[in-house]
């Protein structure tokens, strides 16, 4: 595991006018280069958590440390440069009138020189494969394309961490795949740390680590294999388990002698093959 980039220490948060804790005594760390999935049903507090990390809300008590410095009103702008966010609704985060303007928006805010800006905009758009759409207006783009532009907007600022706050939940399957593929490639290319907040368990299955949120608290934390072993517990929390895990369990129940938990369908097929040849 890489070095600790972010740590949350007993963080509590209440929305104004509400007496229950939206986030209740949450502690965990985010490590450099990992893909962390934070899952939970709607209303489990997972999106509030994202906003706390980006200084869009401030903890009522507890401490959030980013790269060694505590997140406060004074350090918030620095934190926002280090942690980029992609939100749920593709339309409501597209600020620019065209693709390139939108990617440049964050750079403009940070006072980057024009020539460097042009270079970075182009490079960021190439990384998300949207460079052919430079001067397109947002209403001509699909949801998946808009989200990729949003990712480019984050990349252009060269952050340490990218937070995807349910960034695929409003997309069609093709758009979802586009966005996840983009994120996967980015993660492989460089040391970008990804935090994806989601209720899509297929998406979470690809992460290195999963945190399950429930009622504002960390319910479980572990590797995808550990988490999906919980099965019924997850379903009770309003979540689901990946198809391959479901199938593997069902097959085992019928008496097939499968050894492993299977996070991907390929693994399951492989083991079935072996079993088949042995029979």
């Amino acid at each position: 595991m890489g070095k600790k980039l972010v740590s949350l220490d007993h963080v509590v948060f209440n929305y104004e006018g509400s007496d229950s804790h939206a986030i209740n005594d949450v502690s965990f760390d985010i490590y450099e280069g990992e893909w962390l999935a934070i899952v939970g049903h709607n209303g489990s507090g997972k999106s509030t958590l994202a906003k706390l990390l980006n200084g869009l809300h401030f903890a009522s008590s507890g401490v959030i440390t980013i790269n060694g410095s505590e997140l406060t009103q004074a350090t918030v702008w620095e934190a926002r440069r280090k942690i980029g966010m992609v939100f749920q609704n593709p339309d409501n985060q597209f600020v620019g009138t065209t693709v390139e303007d939108d990617v440049a928006f964050g750079l403009e805010n940070n006072g980057i020189q024009q020539d460097i800006m042009a270079e970075r905009v182009k490079r960021a758009l190439m990384k998300v494969k949207m460079d052919a759409f430079l001067d397109q207006e947002p209403h001509h783009l699909s949801g998946g394309q808009k989200q990729r532009v949003a990712i480019a907007g984050v990349l252009a600022l060269q952050p340490d961490i990218i937070i995807l706050d349910e960034a695929t939940s409003m997309l069609d399957p093709r758009g979802r795949e586009e966005v996840l593929e983009t994120v996967r490639e980015l993660k492989e290319e460089n040391v970008l740390t990804v935090v994806s907040i989601t209720h899509d368990l297929e998406e979470a299955a690809k992460a290195d680590r999963i945190i399950v949120m429930n009622k504002g608290q960390v319910h479980r934390e572990g590797s995808p294999i550990e988490i999906f072993r919980l099965e019924d517990e997850l379903i009770e929390l309003g979540l689901d388990i990946p198809f391959s895990v479901k199938l593997s369990k069902a097959l085992q129940k019928t008496g097939l002698d499968l050894k492993n938990d299977h996070l991907t369908e390929e693994e399951l097929v492989k083991e079935l093959c072996e079993l088949h040849s042995k029979m």
Binding site: L56, R80, V95, F105, G106, N109, G153, V154, L157
Partner: peptide, 14 residues
């Protein structure tokens, strides 16, 4: 929309 946009703009350093 306005609220979400403001949040997004803020998070992008505006």
């Amino acid at each position: 929309r306005a609220e979400e946009l403001a949040t997004a703009m803020e998070s992008r350093g505006y």
